[in-house]
Design a protein around this nucleic acid. Sequence first.
DNA 1: CCCTAAGCGAGACGGTACGTCAGGTCTTCGG
DNA 2: CCGAAGACCTGACGTACCGTCTCGCTTAGGG
Lengths: 213, 213, 213, 213
Amino acid sequence: MSSTDPQTARTGRPRSTAADAAILEATRASLVDLGWSKLTMGDVAARAGVAKTTLYRRWAGKNELVVDAVAVLFDELELPDRGSLAADVQGVVLQFAALLERPETRTALMAVVAESTRDDSLRVRIRDSIVDRQKRLVLEGRQRAQRRGELPVEPDAVVADRTADLIFDVIAGAVVHRMLVSAEPVDTDWARQFTLLLLSGLGAGTMERRPGS
Amino acid sequence: MSSTDPQTARTGRPRSTAADAAILEATRASLVDLGWSKLTMGDVAARAGVAKTTLYRRWAGKNELVVDAVAVLFDELELPDRGSLAADVQGVVLQFAALLERPETRTALMAVVAESTRDDSLRVRIRDSIVDRQKRLVLEGRQRAQRRGELPVEPDAVVADRTADLIFDVIAGAVVHRMLVSAEPVDTDWARQFTLLLLSGLGAGTMERRPGS
Amino acid sequence: MSSTDPQTARTGRPRSTAADAAILEATRASLVDLGWSKLTMGDVAARAGVAKTTLYRRWAGKNELVVDAVAVLFDELELPDRGSLAADVQGVVLQFAALLERPETRTALMAVVAESTRDDSLRVRIRDSIVDRQKRLVLEGRQRAQRRGELPVEPDAVVADRTADLIFDVIAGAVVHRMLVSAEPVDTDWARQFTLLLLSGLGAGTMERRPGS
Amino acid sequence: MSSTDPQTARTGRPRSTAADAAILEATRASLVDLGWSKLTMGDVAARAGVAKTTLYRRWAGKNELVVDAVAVLFDELELPDRGSLAADVQGVVLQFAALLERPETRTALMAVVAESTRDDSLRVRIRDSIVDRQKRLVLEGRQRAQRRGELPVEPDAVVADRTADLIFDVIAGAVVHRMLVSAEPVDTDWARQFTLLLLSGLGAGTMERRPGS
DNA sequence: CCCTAAGCGAGACGGTACGTCAGGTCTTCGG
DNA sequence: CCGAAGACCTGACGTACCGTCTCGCTTAGGG
């Protein structure tokens, strides 16, 4: 984030807020046109009608800039009530797939993840800006399913969290892997088969410690 | 592959096979030391004791070179008979996780996948060299489980293939996502929980069309 | 010249004038050490403590750079009054010979001339920067000789110019040819013999159209 | 020269004499098309339908090859009897100018001379192959003029030689300088004016020591 | 109402790596 | 042993971006 800490900055000309928006927009546009590896700071600056110095005053480099530019796209994901847990899961799978069809997300996500394997601060930034924010979808879906009586309420918070993380990794991982690694489409058929597998497993998975209870 | 088509090349000095091996080894070493983004063709050439031109004569660029250099690492994955389907799955999950702990695979895999989102020939290369070759593990595991009577034999080849692909994406996707995106460790606990979820789902998933049969 | 047109460049960081001087000096030094054909842009940049890009921002290539670096050396030539036309001619011949003894001029002059046979813009640059500037010596010498009464005043300006050009080509050409092509020394004896030949011819040459007047 | 010393080479496959001719021809062609600096050994080899190895087996490098390729062109110069010394001089001037109009000579001559300023063996090669061979023209012209009674016979051989060298440098130098440095045409007018200057000077110049004799 | 501190565009700067090209050497095969 | 083919190492090329650094010019707020 280009956090304008109100404590730090006091005097002098304030930073242009219009520039921030223009830069992020330009970054996404450049990402679409050129892809991650050919995107350059100079090109983004030119598209945004801004000097390179202005970019560097706000972001440390390409990685940070792209994470911020792309993060907002993932906030589009929503979980409207589709009536059943299965429908909700299938819906979010297709929604996520649609997001990954867009070139700016498809190329940026993997690239920044790759970069983050060598840069811890970048990894943290990605987790905070992108990944953790989407776990809300799992939590919301579970809560709703529990209200419907489709899922039991897990009393142990630690187990509940662990399970939510697992679900998240399985859903997101499977979709990303199919689309970007296997390079096969995520269509309704696939989503239905995947949902069936997940929910069946889920029934048992959440009952893991049931016998002992 | 730098396939030495025996039909094409006839006259002149033949390409040094020693160079090929040295270059791939140097690529992996450079990947460990520098990571994907800082790896340069010049550095690889220097480590391999080879001229840059020799690299470019064999590979079109960094992407192609790294795919070839890393592909062989994935062939290490094996599926020894651990006595049950659950044990086999858990074993391969942990084995895959160990592979992704290694810096050369962790950084390279995501990077080339990211690059492949803009380059179809690269995508094909990755599929042929890396992805499709590992599907053998799923097929072998299923076959073994069927021999043990843990899984029914699916008579429809199309359905069987579709399911195998799904399993592959779920396993590989979940492991990769947890390790590289969520940045959480894949330990025995996680592997056990994941395996339980998968196999439970699998029981139902493969019975998808059973009622209708 | 890397003329900093005051009209063109307004905004942005101004070019370092120190760099210009350092580069030209480094070029001459490199020319002495390596000669024309082994001189490289990279070496000049390194000697000048400057990036290669800075060179290319100011000069299109090796040829242009060397012309500018060497041009100033030719401005050293002077024509002090030695009392008679013969002494003046002989003096400038020896002075020019001394200039061509220096490795940076000897190698650079022929090389850029050779290059200019295929590049008109380079030819123009050489003429403007080097050749035409030295015609002043011929003009000054003639004027002085006329004041002394050693030479008649040619009333027709066209004829006067044509003769001056001829003299210039004969002097410069003979000296260059003897030193660089024939590879024989230009010593006092040779200079005296050449001067005698030239001045005798000149007496007749300038009277070319006298009979008709 | 690629002297095929009959003593040295005995056994094995003899060198192709056709190759020699083809290479020199190809060198001249390449020189016309590309100029000195862009001419490459590889290109010459390709044009001649010959392997690069074959070139290097016969010539040490670009310089030596070009000198040999061009030297023969200068042998075209002849001195037909035009009836008077003035006509002979003017004729050879125009003939030499015509030779320097041809791109292969114009560019090659200066280039190899430039190169020779740093390479003594090349300088020797040029002198032997090109320069000294043309002095025959001066000697022949003088002899003829003496037979006609236009020039006195110089009894001192040393003086005679010194004068011949001077004449040679003045003629060749002036023509080369005018064409390649001043970049002005050598036409009939210029040739006539130059000849007049030279011969007038010559009359006096050769009488240098007459008064004392 | 100016003063001052920061932001801003422009663009030059020292660098690093790029991918290509030519030079000159070597290694193979066939004649 | 010659010659073609072509792979090899070396080193320079000219370009593209990097991230930093001047410049001269806004553009606010605080005195």
